[in-house]
């Protein structure tokens, strides 16, 4: 088993990408970034530095003002999965139907989709909850459903926009470990947006620190800790040192323009 993620061939590149909204806000300016197959990349930065905008550009939900988003392999749009900050489930549909949704939109019947969904329910530790309605679930469980829905199309690339920001710490830690496990088993690529230094270091093999006004890549840091990373890693001195290093860089990025964190987004 190859334990060196990010060694894969490049999956996609942002080339000098800029995005200016019609209200004049330059959300991104001259962002260049290459994402390798199998990477777990975190975009780390203060609010308003264009992290969500970058994800939407990668997903093709929005197009760059300047520059290009280039895929190195010919992949259809269904090769991208998206997980939002809120679980954003269909409140009128049960867990099973929520996970089925992306396949259903592609014309797959319940019967055809069932094996994949059962398997995923198992992997996100929700077996037995297929009939439950979203409002009957805790925040962490809803997020697990959302992740399962993001993975049900077996995407090559999973985009996650601060998915665990609204969860309590205990739940977040569990989801972090479970997500890493899923990623190592399925070997998809992840771009993970967060404003938590600890989360980004724990999860990713590369942290992209961003600065605001205009949003840009401030520095890229390799996280040279081997996988698998479990709970022992969380308390290791190695982890603490990596967090301090990353935190310092983030501090520099924020101090470039103080007040950038007050955006409220």
């Amino acid at each position: 088993m190859v334990d060196d993620p990010g060694s894969g061939a490049p999956l996609l590149s942002l080339r000098s990408v800029g995005k200016t909204f019609s209200n004049g806000v330059a959300a991104l300016d001259d962002v260049s970034l290459t994402i390798g197959e199998g990477d777990f990349i975190s975009l780390l930065g203060p609010s308003g530095c264009g992290k969500s905008t970058a994800l939407r550009l990668i997903a093709g939900l929005s197009s760059p003002t300047i520059g290009t988003v280039e895929w190195h392999k010919q992949l259809g749009s269904d090769c991208v999965g998206f997980v939002f900050q809120e679980p954003t489930l269909l409140p009128w549909a049960n867990v099973f139907d929520n996970i089925w949704l992306p396949l259903r939109l592609k014309g797959m019947s319940r019967r055809q989709a069932e094996p994949a969904i059962r398997d995923l329910l198992d992997r996100v530790r929700l077996s037995g909850f297929d009939k439950a309605m979203p409002r009957e679930l805790s925040g962490g469980m809803k997020m697990r459903v959302s992740i399962a829905r993001g993975l049900v199309t077996r995407p090559r690339l999973l985009l996650m926009d601060e998915p665990f920001a609204a969860l309590d710490e205990i739940t977040r830690f569990r989801l972090n470990t479970d997500l890493l496990e899923l990623w190592r088993e399925e070997r998809f690529t992840v771009v993970f947006v967060t404003h938590s230094v600890f989360e980004s270091v724990f999860l990713s093999n590369r942290v992209v620190v961003m600065a605001a006004r205009p949003g840009r890549v401030f520095r890229e840091l390799d996280v040279a800790a081997p996988y698998p990373r479990g709970e022992p890693f969380r308390t290791s001195p190695e982890y603490a040192a990596l967090c301090r290093e990353t935190s310092d860089v983030l501090g520099e990025a924020i101090h470039l323009n103080p007040g950038a964190g007050d955006d409220g987004h």
Partner: peptide, 26 residues
């Protein structure tokens, strides 16, 4: 309708009709 859900539908290549039937009407 939640903007994110609309994005999710777009991302999965949903048609207008699917968006109406599976998202907006419910």
């Amino acid at each position: 309708v939640d903007r994110n859900l609309i994005d999710l539908f777009k991302l999965n290549g949903a048609t207008r009709w699917q968006q109406l039937w599976h998202l907006r009407l419910p």
